[in-house]
Design a protein around this nucleic acid. Sequence first.
DNA 1: TTACGTGCAAAACTTTTGCACTATC
DNA 2: GATAGTGCAAAAGTTTTGCACGTAA
Lengths: 145, 145
Amino acid sequence: MEYRSLFREHGMKCTPSRLRVYQVLENNVSPLGAQEIYEIINQEDHVADLSTVYRILNAFVQQEMVIRTVIDGDDRALYEVKRHEHKHHFVCLRCKEVFPLAGCPLERYEQNLGQEEGFVVEGHRLEIYGYCPNCKEKKEGEESK
Amino acid sequence: MEYRSLFREHGMKCTPSRLRVYQVLENNVSPLGAQEIYEIINQEDHVADLSTVYRILNAFVQQEMVIRTVIDGDDRALYEVKRHEHKHHFVCLRCKEVFPLAGCPLERYEQNLGQEEGFVVEGHRLEIYGYCPNCKEKKEGEESK
DNA sequence: TTACGTGCAAAACTTTTGCACTATC
DNA sequence: GATAGTGCAAAAGTTTTGCACGTAA
């Protein structure tokens, strides 16, 4: 099985819980919270405890298989599999949905930052906030009342 | 007093706790957590309870006098006074210090996003992660062990 | 068989809330 | 004097941890 070797490469045994957590993350384009993942994997029968989900997620993050993010105005952490492309998110202020955005506008900016300020840039986090096409319309409706 | 009218404009009474919380935020270039603010204002004598600090911060945020942010890898929220300039932060992965950065490289990118994808952009969040000049050296020392 | 992984319960940490009391306007 | 603000204690939400038991390799 393909996952077995993926886990072994990162020094972890292949267990049903880990498998399910990883698959759920893989199948979602938008990042998910620990509680959400817990609910999804246990929908049919009991697969893993919430504390186990947290332990698994922490292990994935430490192994850099998964990225952990926090979003303004929402205190819990969100998790998503690390994919090859570098991308960012658009967060809808109304429905709270998180949309993936392709690409990144920051490469040149980061070069400057290293040269001019003496910082070593390792990465960045960018989210765009606003209204998604769907909520854009609804919002206009609400405001014209 | 100058603060008195600032508070009144936002429909809030001028109390010692609010005054101190606001001043502490004003005097810090880097954002602070609620617990930190609590400790600073109560250093000499008791000024406000932690729950009061939270209530005050929430009121400030609601009145858009203060910005609330969360930073990856650190679960608590950070607060800073809303200043006129639009700026971002550099977060040091080693000492966790937050450095303000002037300016913003995103204006054109956001225009595209609205036109091509149908999103309404209201704002964004950008943090750069890496090592500050100070920790850069220390880290190199550690690695060459 | 032996580490590593997990369930359960409890704790830690951040943030919110209810209620009686206090201070500002 | 009315209303908004506060202290204290308790609760709620998220994440972590200790320990005994279970399971993958």
